[in-house]
Amino acid sequence: MLSEAPEQVAEMLRQKSMEARLLLINTLHESGGGHYGGCLSELDILAVLYNGILNIRPDDPEWEGRDHFILSKGHGAIGLASVLALRGFFPREVLKTSKKLDSCVGWHTTIKMPGIEHPTGSLGHGLSVAVGLAVAKKLDKKQSRVFVLLGDGECDEGSVWEGAMAASKYRLDNLVAIVDRNGISYDSRTEEVMPLEPFADKWKAFGWAVRSADGHSVGDLWNAFSAVPFEAGKPSVVIASTIKGKGVSFMENSVAWHAGPTTDEQYRTAIKELQKRAEVAR
């Protein structure tokens, strides 16, 4: 859809992603904290999907012909919410309601939020749901694709591998899984908690077509997502190497910043850093 001028596209995506980061930090800080680490690591992936890959209509989130997206790592909710708001699914002001009861903005996704297809939060559910959705699309002979974003630690869950096996059986080449491989789960680094490597081999052994990407290079991500399905008759998985807390120096690659509140000073530092990066990028 945007293949005409790669440089311009990349520039646009970078900018979207930067805006989303700022919005995310503001939202999290205002709401007293949240899952900084995982929201920051997934943000470039989401920005590329929503601004360059997914066939969607923000003014009509339920539009029949849309591509579907499920955030299996439900704790990345505010990251997704920031991207959705910027893409026009709802006004940015909605994000300010996160502290209020009945808000659609929570620590985990809620279906009250326009653009959210399925609520998540408990890990290891999203892939199965995406498999079902992809099967339904095949049944209806629809062109829509289903994208699902998993956390890497989430792949400890057996249900993920149940879903992986089923997707391969049903030859779901309309299904794309993306793993936010930031290397850190809640308690510690994934390889200490539960070694996942050789990670790509696992997916291959479960019948998936695998591609790796730099999860913070919008160009790399865009190229990968544009190339799906990687193999006809196979589901595709993109293992996106990311950095937990990406963009805020003191959060980057830190186990401590899975979730938490920020002090006003930390907040100011984070914003300053992000703005600086934005300028440099420009």
Binding site: H125, L127, S128, V129, V131, G132, L133, V135, S159, G163
Partner: peptide, 14 residues
Amino acid sequence: ANASGVAAGLALGG
């Protein structure tokens, strides 16, 4: 577990 999740996805797909 997967069967139940897949069913949910199918329901989402109408």
